[in-house]
């Protein structure tokens, strides 16, 4: 509790993609989550996946302006991981010993938001992956790596930025088509 003001600052930094902040949170909490997952029928890789999912939830939450951390950061991460892992165990048909290691808080709403977002991200991921090359790389350079059209033109061997732009729009239209064919069904 003594760290609470620091934790708020830490989350603000995390929301701004500060990798130092991610490192601190990672360092302080990963071993705890690992111990929990290992003691509940899980492996190292599963613990890492669960922990990173919780980090993404935290990151997304930190980015919303209304975000206020109502508990200790450790408790929050533990609660999210615990919920996520118990759900995963259920899906896999494995059982948990059900031992509580730390305090946990109700995080059902956050989990629900997290899962819906995962579904949406999955749709985008599949749409991008079924796009084929060079469209996939071209759009990824623009939207994810945030490269300029001039850089992209040079990278993909287009004679000028306008040509690259044209190609980008063609690709974009295909991607949108793929995306919405899935997204509407999901709604």
């Amino acid at each position: 509790m003594k760290d609470e003001p620091n934790e708020q600052l830490l989350l603000k930094a995390l929301a701004k993609n500060d990798s130092k902040a991610a490192e601190i949170i990672y360092k302080n909490n990963f071993n705890m989550v690992l111990a929990f997952v290992l003691n509940n029928n899980g492996s190292y890789d599963e613990a890492r996946d669960i922990f990173q999912e919780a980090m993404i939830t935290l990151y997304q939450k930190a980015k919303t302006e209304s975000f206020v951390l109502t508990s200790q950061l450790k408790t929050y991460i533990y609660s999210i991981c615990r919920r996520l892992w118990l759900k995963r165990l259920q899906q896999l048909g494995r059982t948990a010993s059900g031992i509580e290691y730390y305090d946990s808080i109700a995080v059902e709403d956050d989990i629900e938001i997290h899962e819906r977002r995962n579904v949406e991200l999955g749709i985008m991921d599949r749409a991008l992956n079924s796009l084929g090359e060079p469209c996939k790389s071209l759009l990824e350079s623009f939207y994810i790596e945030k490269k300029s059209m001039d850089d992209i033109a040079a990278l993909f061997g287009y004679t000028n930025a306008d040509n690259a732009k044209n190609q980008k729009y063609k690709c974009l239209m295909r991607l949108k088509k793929l995306f919405f064919s899935q997204y509407n069904i999901g709604e």
Binding site: S19, A22, Q52, I56, R117, E120, L121, D125, K146
Partner: peptide, 13 residues
Amino acid sequence: DTYADIRNFKDIL
């Protein structure tokens, strides 16, 4: 945007 944001964050992680 969300997709790009989370993918970049995953890389950081």
